[in-house]
C-alpha cells in the first residue's frame, strides 16, 4: 500500500520512456558487439537502418538512394560488403563449432560421473589440484588468474 502511494506521488519514476528504451537498446547492442555476437548485432543494425530509411525518408528520395547503394555494391565497396557477409557466415560456423565443443565436454564429464558412480572400490584423492596457480611454474604466468574468458578451469 505504501509502495503504491509512493509510486503515484512520482509517476515519472515508473514511466518507461524513449530515453529508457534508447539506453537499454544501446546497452544490449554494445553487449552483443563486446561479446562477439556480431551476427545478431549486424541484423539489428541493418533492420534499424532499413526502418529509418523506410519511415523517415521521402518516397521520391528512396529510389536514388537504392541506386547509390547498388552502385556502391558494384564498385570496390562491394568487396567489403562481401567481406561483411563472409565474416558473419564465419561467425555462425564458429558459434556452431563452439557449441559442439561444449557438448562434447559435457558428454565427457557425464561419462566420468557415471564411471565414478558405478566404478566400485575407488581410492579418493586427498588434495584438489587445480590450474589456479598452485603449480611451481606459476611465477612465469601473469597475475590475472581469473580471466573473463569463458569455460574456466574446473
Amino acid at each position: 500500500m505504501a509502495k503504491q502511494t509512493k509510486a503515484s506521488e512520482n509517476p515519472a519514476s515508473t514511466r518507461y520512456g524513449g530515453w529508457d528504451f534508447a539506453r537499454d537498446f544501446s546497452t544490449q547492442f554494445f553487449a552483443l558487439l563486446n561479446t562477439g555476437r556480431i551476427f545478431p548485432a549486424l541484423l539489428v543494425l541493418l533492420a534499424l537502418l532499413m526502418l529509418l530509411f523506410g519511415v523517415r525518408m521521402p518516397t521520391e528520395e528512396l529510389a536514388p538512394l537504392s541506386n547509390h547503394l547498388l552502385d556502391a555494391l558494384s564498385g570496390w565497396t562491394g568487396v567489403f560488403f562481401l567481406l561483411l557477409v563472409v565474416t558473419n557466415c564465419g561467425w555462425m560456423l564458429v558459434f556452431h563449432e563452439r557449441d559442439k565443443l561444449h557438448q562434447q565436454e559435457i558428454k565427457r564429464l557425464t561419462d566420468i560421473r557415471s564411471q565414478l558412480m558405478h566404478g566400485g572400490d575407488m581410492t579418493l584423492i586427498k588434495e584438489h589440484r587445480s590450474s589456479d596457480g598452485e603449480q611451481q611454474e606459476g611465477y612465469l604466468l601473469p597475475s590475472q588468474q581469473h580471466s573473463s574468458r569463458e569455460g574456466g578451469s574446473p
Partner: peptide
C-alpha cells in the same frame, strides 16, 4: 561498410582463436 566489415573480421579472428 569498411569499418563494420573490418571490425567483424577482427571479432571473428578473436572468437576463432578463443
Amino acid at each position: 561498410v569498411i569499418t563494420t566489415s573490418m571490425y567483424c573480421l577482427f571479432l571473428l579472428i578473436r572468437e576463432y582463436n578463443q
